[in-house]
Simulated assay, not measured.
Amino acid sequence: MRILIDMNLSPIWAQYLQELGIEAIHWINVGNANDPDKIIFDYASANNYIVFTNDLDFGTILAATNANAPSVFQLKSQDLLPKSIGEMVINCLNQYENYLKEGSLITFDTNKVRVRILPLK
């Protein structure tokens, strides 16, 4: 699993995921902080990354483009730091790993998870 962390999440996520053996990189190490979401989306798709974000715009891009990739993992939580929700996020990533590999939009909330298979219709 390769994860590209969006600018709207802390770079702490990259270190947290890497320590658990997950290949992860924060966008600040790849592109510019002010790059539009479409640039991040295209990079993730071309390089086989899962977009890890709390930005709803990536779901909108998936729907508008009818794309099969990249998979997007959206966090919906008041507290977005790994020290608070990291263990739950890792459990979710592991549980839905096959969906992420095949192409999906997963919305993670501490109370529920929603999985939508790509392309979105």
Results as ranks from 00 to 15, higher is better:
P82M: 02
V30L: 01
R2V: 02
Y49T: 07
F73S: 11
S71L: 15
I85T: 04
Y16E: 04
D57K: 08
N111Y: 06
N91G: 12
I3W: 01
A46N: 00
G59M: 11
P11N: 15
Q15W: 13
A24K: 06
I3V: 10
R116W: 09
I85Y: 07
N111P: 06
V89K: 00
M7Y: 08
I85L: 01
Y99P: 14
K38Q: 12
N91M: 03
L17Q: 07
N68H: 10
Q74T: 13
R116I: 13
M88N: 06
L80M: 05
N68V: 10
I117V: 08
I5G: 08
G103I: 00
K101S: 07
W27Y: 00
V30T: 09
G31S: 02
I12G: 15
K112P: 08
A64M: 13
A24S: 12
D35L: 11
G21Q: 07
N111V: 08
S10M: 11
I85V: 00
F108S: 14
H26S: 11
L80F: 02
N48L: 06
E87P: 09
I106T: 15
N54E: 15
R114S: 13
L93G: 01
M1C: 01
L62N: 14
I106G: 12
L81R: 09
G103Y: 01
I28Q: 11
K101V: 05
N29D: 13
N66S: 15
K83M: 05
Y43M: 00
S45G: 09
S10R: 10
E19V: 03
T53M: 04
I117R: 08
N32Q: 14
I106Y: 14
P11C: 13
T60Q: 10
S77W: 06
I3A: 03
P82F: 04
D6S: 04
I3G: 03
D79P: 06
Y43I: 00
F52N: 01
Y43L: 00
K83Y: 09
T60D: 09
S10Q: 08
K121H: 11
L93K: 05
H26K: 08
A46M: 00
L81I: 06
Y96G: 00
Y43F: 07
I5F: 02
I50H: 07
Y43W: 02
I40Q: 07
L80I: 06
S71I: 15
M7L: 13
N32Y: 14
N98H: 12
S104T: 13
S84W: 05
K121R: 12
D57S: 03
Y43H: 04
I22E: 00
D79V: 10
K101P: 01
I50K: 04
A63G: 08
I90M: 04
D57H: 05
F52M: 05
N91D: 07
I39Y: 01
V51C: 12
K121Q: 12
F52Q: 02
F41N: 03
R116S: 11
I50V: 13
D109M: 13
S71W: 12
L118V: 00
G31R: 01
N47I: 02
N29C: 09
D35K: 06
L17I: 12
L105S: 09
G59R: 11
E23I: 12
S71D: 14
Q15D: 12
F52W: 03
D35V: 09
D42R: 07
G59A: 14
V115L: 03
K101A: 05
H26N: 09
L93A: 02
V72T: 10
L75H: 06
I28K: 14
K83L: 08
L120A: 04
P82K: 03
I39Q: 04
I3H: 02
G59E: 10
N48V: 06
